[in-house]
Computed example of a mutant assay.
Amino acid sequence: MSNLSERELAATIDHAILKPELVRADVDAELDIAAEWGVFSVCVRPSDIAYAVKRLDGTGVAVGTVIGFPHGTTSTAAKTAEVAQALADGASEVDMVVNIGFLRSGFDDAVVDDIRAVVNAAEGRIAKVILETSYLDDDQIARGSRLTEAGGAAFVKTSTGFGGGGASVEHVRLMRASVGPAVQVKASGGVRNLTTALAMIDAGATRLGTSAAATILGEARAIERGDGPTGATDAASY
Rank of each mutant, 00 (worst) to 15 (best):
T206G: 10
V191E: 06
L174P: 05
A91V: 01
I130N: 05
G72D: 02
P181S: 10
T196S: 15
I216W: 10
A34C: 12
S178M: 01
I201Q: 07
N99C: 12
D26M: 12
P20T: 03
S41D: 02
L208R: 03
G68F: 01
A203Y: 13
T65K: 09
D108N: 06
R45A: 04
S178H: 05
C43F: 00
R104T: 04
T215I: 15
D114I: 00
A220M: 00
A235E: 12
R125I: 06
A154Q: 13
D89F: 01
G231L: 11
M96P: 13
V94F: 07
D109A: 15
M200R: 15
V191N: 02
T158G: 02
I126Y: 10
A62D: 09
G190P: 01
T195P: 06
A78P: 01
E8P: 10
R173W: 06
D89E: 13
G152F: 14
E219L: 09
I13R: 01
K128T: 09
V42A: 11
I17S: 05
I49C: 09
Y51L: 01
D139A: 15
H71L: 08
D113T: 11
Q184M: 11
V61H: 04
T65A: 08
R225E: 13
G72H: 12
D138W: 00
S159K: 14
I130E: 04
F107N: 14
A220E: 00
D138A: 06
R104S: 14
L136I: 05
L198C: 06
L103C: 10
G161P: 02
L194I: 01
E21M: 08
E149S: 12
I115T: 04
D108W: 08
S211M: 07
S145F: 09
K79E: 00
A121C: 09
T195M: 12
V66C: 07
A25D: 01
Y238N: 08
V191A: 11
D227T: 00
Y135E: 10
Y135F: 12
A153E: 05
E224N: 13
D227V: 02
G124N: 04
I33H: 12
A121W: 09
A62Q: 08
Q85S: 14
I49R: 13
D234H: 09
S105K: 14
D202M: 14
S92P: 00
A35W: 06
G161E: 00
I17W: 00
E170K: 10
G204E: 06
D227M: 14
V172W: 12
E82L: 12
K79M: 08
R24N: 02
M1T: 02
E36T: 15
A187N: 09
T160N: 09
T76I: 04
N193G: 09
V23K: 15
M96Q: 02
V129F: 07
D139V: 15
G161L: 03
V44S: 08
D48C: 13
A110G: 04
I13A: 02
T158S: 13
A88D: 15
A122D: 05
G231Q: 06
A34F: 11
S211R: 03
G163N: 11
V23Q: 13
T233S: 13
R225Y: 08
A205N: 07
